[in-house]
Simulated scan of single mutants.
Amino acid sequence: MSRFATYTAGGQTFYGAITEGGAVALSPEFPQWPTLREVIAADGLHALAQAAQGRAVTHREFTYDIPIPAPEKIICVGVNFPDRNAEYKDGQEAPANMSLFIRFPRSFTGHGRALIRPKASEQLDYEGEIAVVIGKGGRHIPQDRALSHIAALTLCNEGTLRDWVRHAKFNVTQGKNFDSSGAMGPWLVPFTHPAQIEDVRLMTRVNGEVRQDDRTGRMIFPVARQIAYISTFTTLVPGDIIVTGTPTGAGARFDPPRYLKPGDVIEVEAEGIGVLRNTVEDEA
């Protein structure tokens, strides 16, 4: 399985292939593609895979960054599993259309780094999700062709400050965008077949305890529909990220709530992608 990451080593940022022994820097060989966003725009993941074959590890010690450092858009899908809809206890059936919100790249950190619990709130919560990276852009993308517009998959901990999503009448932007409150990574896995997304097990563990466990086949709005719907109102471009929805089991839904605290270890895992692992620290 090919895995491509953005990482920092010795004060320099690279992208490259991740192997059992470490990272193989590939960005120096492709100066025309400054980041993985440009690689994806040029349909270059296959070229990276070829370049990595037989290459020795260049970095054994490094720090993961978010895979796409500056996507034009990060669009998140809310309330996308049946049990999540039931959590709201409002008596409403699953909605006809999906709930969406935007996150900024700065609100995410990389694999292995600490999520930051901000000074403004102690209600930092986890949401394990699969994220899709758009490879072929477009507008009004038909649902039956939507999956062909995906370049790669990654994982997301869509960390949320629960009290801050209720600071206003109808929006969640504030609580979803505290700096480094979420994580993305560790790497990109090239998307080559619908089976990689259509019915995949997705789990979140906190300190080894399984908190979320479901399958993408139970999504209210499957990924193909997400792409078709979003592209109705905005042009998707290569490198855009769609965060596809989280199962039931977030900390806010326990009684009493079980929010994240410094020292916690959160792992988001999905079949065929890997494990995204982060700790928690308080804002300095």
Rank of each mutant, 00 (worst) to 15 (best):
V24C: 03
A86H: 01
G175M: 10
A168K: 05
F221Y: 02
G249M: 14
T216P: 04
R162V: 07
C76Y: 01
M184L: 05
R201W: 15
G263P: 08
I75K: 00
A5I: 12
R103G: 03
A183C: 11
P105C: 03
F14G: 07
P34L: 07
I134T: 12
M203A: 04
F221D: 01
V165P: 02
R215C: 06
V268W: 05
Y88D: 04
E72G: 02
E158N: 12
S107D: 13
A146P: 03
I220D: 03
E61I: 04
A70Y: 00
Y7A: 13
A114Q: 12
V265L: 14
Q174R: 08
V206S: 07
T109Y: 06
S181Q: 07
R215M: 11
V57M: 06
V172W: 09
L188N: 03
N157W: 03
D199R: 01
A146I: 00
I227E: 00
F108D: 05
F178C: 00
L124F: 09
P71M: 08
A52Y: 06
F62Q: 11
A152Q: 05
V268F: 02
I266R: 09
Q123V: 14
K261L: 09
R60G: 10
R55D: 04
A252I: 15
L100H: 02
L100E: 06
W187M: 08
H167M: 10
Y88I: 12
S231N: 00
Q92E: 07
G138F: 02
T232M: 01
P262S: 02
D179Y: 07
H59Q: 04
D255A: 11
C156V: 07
A47F: 05
T232A: 02
P262D: 03
R84V: 01
R139W: 01
V223S: 02
D240P: 03
P69T: 07
V165W: 10
Q50L: 10
W187H: 07
I273M: 11
A224F: 00
C156L: 10
H59P: 15
A86N: 14
V210L: 15
E38C: 02
I230R: 00
R113N: 11
T246C: 09
R55A: 15
